[in-house]
């Protein structure tokens, strides 16, 4: 296990909160691809030492995500115990709903309008 608490990549910043929830923020309006999904999953594993942890995703300013990226998140969902997608505009809401309803991840996943509600829900998945 590593002591890293925050990891930044070309298109994202990911950090661990004191309550055990991991957060990720995408660089605004930049489309993300399979390579980005792989990098984010590796970063998640590094932050948590490989243990599944709850993840809060700030999607409001995120750009569109490719199908390959979505499928990679579904394929590697063992790195998360639950996912909260915080949305804030029509684009992010559509992408979040698309991921939930079309890509159909099996882990608990919900869409939220604000961080606090998302965190309250996610804390139930901290182990």
């Amino acid at each position: 296990m590593t002591d890293a608490r925050e990891i930044s990549g070309e298109k994202y910043r990911m950090w661990t909160r004191p309550d055990g929830v991991v957060e990720i923020e995408w660089v605004p309006q930049v489309p993300s691809t399979l390579d980005d999904a792989v990098a984010v999953i590796e970063a998640m594993s590094e932050l948590t030492g490989g243990r599944a942890a709850p993840l809060l995703v700030h999607t409001t300013d995120a750009g569109p995500q490719s199908r390959e990226a979505r499928m990679e998140f579904v394929r590697r969902q063992e790195v998360v115990s639950a996912v909260a997608l915080v949305v804030g505009n029509p684009l992010s809401r559509m992408m979040a709903n698309f991921f939930i309803n079309v890509s159909k991840p099996e882990v608990p996943i919900r869409l939220f309008e604000d961080d606090e509600s998302a965190l309250t829900w996610l804390r139930g998945y901290v182990t």
Partner: peptide
């Protein structure tokens, strides 16, 4: 084209793109 506004038209554009991928 998905613009930077993140508005409804961008949402429709992104939705059409995603459906196209599927």
């Amino acid at each position: 084209h998905v613009g930077l506004a993140g508005d409804h038209i961008d949402a429709v554009a992104a939705g059409v793109n995603s459906l196209g991928e599927e």
